[in-house]
Nucleic acid binder design. Structure first.
Lengths: 252, 252
DNA sequence: CGCGACCTTGAAGAACGTCAATGGTCGTGG
DNA sequence: CCACGACCATTGACGTTCTTCAAGGTCGCG
């Protein structure tokens, strides 16, 4: 567990926000000037836990994070996966108690920013505030889409949909291309995100492989047929509210 | 379908926001001064639809609304239920295309406010803006809680949880008391909200009745044993981020 | 080379869905 | 006031999807 300041380009938050709005030089500088303590995490380490009252937010620099809730008897629901540039606990600025936990998926690098510094930035840069506000609304839209899957889609469709979503999000910020994406998510993680057992996830993934839609190995996803995967997954990217030109190409 | 201005007390948005923050007289006046066109709706009428690009927001004055998404073959997922004082499509200020639809559950009265007027209010009253932001974050917290239910709870638990949530929300704004609440939600609505078939909802409700936890008839819910219902439903109201004193009394 | 983490497989059972018919209740119009 | 229709709740029989349990198998890494 190390803590150190961070001042390297490209700043992940700048990259993320510029996929939503164009920033002025001043706005970019204001973001880069945010005091941030950097910390390196191993796999499966909690960052904030349900019940905590954090005084800082967490910016994901590298790796993936996930949010989750635990129930008794080991039942777990994963609520979201996050990629570089996300601020998964931005809500803690306005809701002082955490109603879920946040942890690293694989090894990850995060930066902590004090709430007061974030609030200062939001006050000084209304357009940045707007972009972050918009981003939390997109988060909520993703929650809704997951609800649709959890409530009304079968296992194979849920998995295909999630893979399309993850690829699309990574593609939008430049973390994936050519229908290939880093994928440090185990089948048990998928199960907990999709409300399934890991056994059934395994069998459903094999279905997708058998149809030659994907290759999904230890740490990477390769989409072999984007259109058909999107069709099987009932994937319509409207809910991600991306710029059209940031969506994956329709062609295989 | 009628349209007329609205100037009556108590203003539902004032009542709702005062359950979150205390408002000054100026803030109350600013809200009451919002130009609003009132419309009366029958049951099951769409207000905005997936794909629309609205230029106004909808304030629910009386009755209940719900948000939903349709899939093919009649599959439907209800995403949220809303009560008086809610602004279910506030997000349309920042996300210009609707990714889901909004409709009335029973007969309802709503007021439409132009985006530009809402934005004016938010600019003039930062604390109102903060309260509304907080409210959309609570919405997102409710989505997460529903994801937990859809993914990891069985039918009986899901229903009990939803009933606890609805009663608690209504209680917080004074729409329910004495463990009794208006409930214009059909079993088919419950099914579409909980990711179940209406047949299975029916059988699970009968389970709850048999344990003498609830009486649920045409239009009202009576909770006969709050503690045990909350226990069966694994209900912990933390995620609603209410003032502690606005929660239902622990005693039966 | 051995250990731990993850993936894969088979068999049996539980939870939930589907289909189809019946019954209740409420408002409405004759 | 009664009869009707619409909408909703209820019931039974039967299928399907998914879970659980338990046992290997594979891969990477110290």
């Amino acid at each position: 567990v190390q803590h150190r300041p961070y001042h390297t380009d490209p700043h992940p938050l700048v990259r993320k926000l510029e996929s939503i709005v164009d920033l002025t030089a001043e706005e970019r500088d204001a973001i880069r000037a945010l005091p941030m303590m950097v910390r390196t995490l191993n796999a499966d380490q909690d960052i904030v836990r349900e019940g905590d009252r954090p005084s800082q937010c967490c910016l994901l620099i590298e790796g993936m994070l996930f949010r989750y809730r635990m129930l008794d008897e080991g039942r777990r629901q994963i609520l979201a996966f996050h990629i570089s540039g996300d601020v998964p606990d931005l809500q803690s600025i306005h809701l002082n108690i955490m109603d879920h936990s946040l942890a690293s998926l694989g090894p990850a690098t995060v930066g902590f920013v004090q709430h007061r510094d974030v609030l200062g930035l939001l006050g000084r840069c209304p357009r940045v505030a707007g972009a972050l506000w918009r981003d939390t609304l997109i988060d909520a839209a993703i929650f809704r889409e997951w609800m649709v899957g959890l409530g009304r889609r079968d296992a194979e469709t849920r998995i295909a949909h999630l893979l399309c979503e993850l690829y699309t999000k990574m593609h939008a910020v430049g973390l994936a291309k050519d229908h290939s994406a880093p994928m440090p998510i185990t089948q048990e993680n998928f199960a907990d995100a999709l409300g399934l057992s890991s056994v059934h996830v395994n069998r459903s993934i094999q279905e997708l492989r058998a149809q030659n839609l994907i290759a999904l190995s230890r740490k990477t996803l390769d989409i072999k047929n984007w259109e058909r995967l999107a069709k099987v997954g009932e994937f319509d990217p409207t809910y991600l509210h991306l710029n059209p030109e940031r969506r994956p190409a329709a062609a295989h």
